[in-house]
Amino acid sequence: MNRRPVFLITMLCFGFAFFYIPILSMIVYSFNESRLATVWGGFSTKWYVSLFSNRQVIAALILSLKIALISATVATILGTMAGIALARFRKFRGRVLFSGLVTAPLIMPEVITGISSLMFFILLADWIGWPGQRGFTTVTLAHITFSMVFVTTVVQSRMVQADQAIEEAAMDLGSRPWQVLFDVTLPVIFPAIMSGWLLAFTISLDDVVITAFTTGPGATTLPLLIWSKVKLGVTPDVNALATLMVLVVGLGVVLAGILMSRADRRRDADARLAYQANE
């Protein structure tokens, strides 16, 4: 028992080195003067300057954020409904198919989802004349579809854990159904809904394959722009872009962690106070 932690800690160090050395290397080389992305030629911030003056990058970023905001919000609404349905409605017609439909997109290889969505949109345009052109709308629809099932998974597992007796108590005490929904059920599952939204948002912001299949001319998201640059090889301005993204995400995650642990502590304190008041 004594020897094992040494081995495990070595493996942890090795693992974290494996996780972070590539990212650190990318950050260091983003300050590389040389155009050859892998040979060090002195310190420079010129790639950041060229990045910020690149309108293509800014436009792609704005488009990506727009798609991610809309698709995450719609996916959260639909996904939460599906999660509530699966957790609370015991029997309804087509439940087996429904739970299958909620799981299948999670494991479907992205290429298959990509070609199926593209064929669907092309055939739809052929049959009913819509969508006339693929782009913002078709990408958003595809993103909603594959990210809503992640929201469903998160919400459903929270709903299953939550105590249903509280809802029944509210009903008994005369709450109307919509009051139970807004005063009891939604507050209880709110953290799950939030993390579902965040998950849907990042999945949408990150997606390459399905976006590449469902987009059209003029709708280049940030991952697609990076994809087209990266296919040609390593370039220093992508290093700069990557560094900025890692920085934003890192700050966001740390901030969220601090806020959450603070909220946890406050809730614990509230619970203690309530407990003491009851004694």
């Binding site: 996780f19 590539p22 290397s25 990076i226 390593v234 990557a242 995400v249």
Partner: peptide
């Protein structure tokens, strides 16, 4: 944390 950073950029980091 790496999971939240772009998948594409993690692949790219290894290309470098």
């Amino acid at each position: 944390l790496p999971f939240w950073t772009s998948f594409l950029l993690r692949v790219y980091a290894w290309m470098g």
